Each structure stands twice: as C-alpha cells, then as structure tokens.
Amino acid sequence: MTDTMDGGCACGRIRYTARIDDDEAYLCHCRMCQRSSGNVSLAMKNVEQAAVTWTREPDWYASSPIAKRPYCRECGTSLGFQYLTDTTKMDLTVASFDDPSRFTPSSHFGAESIHEAWLDTSGLPRTRSDEYQRLVDRWDEAGAAPPA
C-alpha cells in the first residue's frame, strides 16, 4: 500500500509530497524534540529521504552536532528531523501532513523523557473549536475562516 501524501507549513511557503508505505507513526519524547518544538512530544512519520519531494526547499536548522531539522522561517512550522550522516531515512512531523488522520501511533521514542501525565488525556473535558464562541467571533471579525 504505497501512496503519496502532501503536506507543508502553516503559511504554505514550504510544501512537500511524500511516498508513504504504511500508516505507522511514532511519538518522540527526546529532549531535543521537546526543545525544538516547545512541546512534550512530536508525532513523527519515518520515510525515505528519496521519497520526499519539496516544492520549495525548507529552511534547515542544525539542532545538534548529529542532526538537522527542516522548518519554515516565515511561520515557524517544524517539518521534521534528519540525521546528518549514515541514513537514507528522515522523519516528517505528522501534523504537517494535509491529512494527518491516516497515521496511527505505533511506538514511543526517547522514553527517558516521557511526561506521563500527557500520555492519557482521554478523561479530560473537551471543547470543540467551532463551539467556542469567542474564537468563532474572532474569525468572523477577521473576515476569515479557521484552518480546516
């Protein structure tokens, strides 16, 4: 089951098409991913570097002596992770895909840095964006529609 999927940054400056062989993704909890994203984990999809075609080359950040990360310098979207040497693979951030719903988490990486309280949040109250009137009003006042 090989498909192609599109993705990109929030402002649309950086776009990509990736060949996807399966639906598995993973959550990375390592401190580098936490610090680079400002979040407790990053949902990542591992792909072959040769399977990714950029319509515009992303900006790259040397996040450590062993890796670099593609991103958009205009909107700040984190697009992935790539080791500098000895690999044909890279990761793309799941949320940067146009339709991330296809992917299912299959494992955790960087388990030494997991923040357990953030793993199972199924019992927390939920509010839909389109039901939060203050947010709906802001979009209306801006004459725009929220991102789909």
Rank of each mutant, 00 (worst) to 15 (best):
P65V: 01
V94K: 11
E74A: 12
T77E: 09
D120I: 02
A25T: 10
E24C: 10
K68D: 06
R15E: 05
S96Y: 00
T2S: 14
V40C: 12
M1G: 15
S37I: 00
G8C: 05
L42R: 07
R69T: 01
H115T: 09
Y132W: 06
D120N: 15
V136M: 13
S63K: 03
P105M: 11
S36V: 04
P70G: 04
G123S: 12
H29I: 05
Y71W: 07
A10V: 07
I114L: 06
H115P: 04
T121R: 14
F109R: 15
G38L: 06
L42P: 04
T55E: 15
L27K: 05
S129D: 09
C33Y: 12
M32P: 03
W118Q: 07
T4Y: 08
A50P: 02
I114D: 06
A111L: 04
R102Q: 12
A142T: 02
D91W: 02
A51N: 11
T4H: 11
S63P: 05
S78N: 09
C33A: 09
F109N: 12
T55V: 00
I114H: 08
T87A: 05
R128N: 07
S122H: 09
R35C: 00
R126A: 12
A43S: 15
V52N: 06
K89M: 11
S78Q: 06
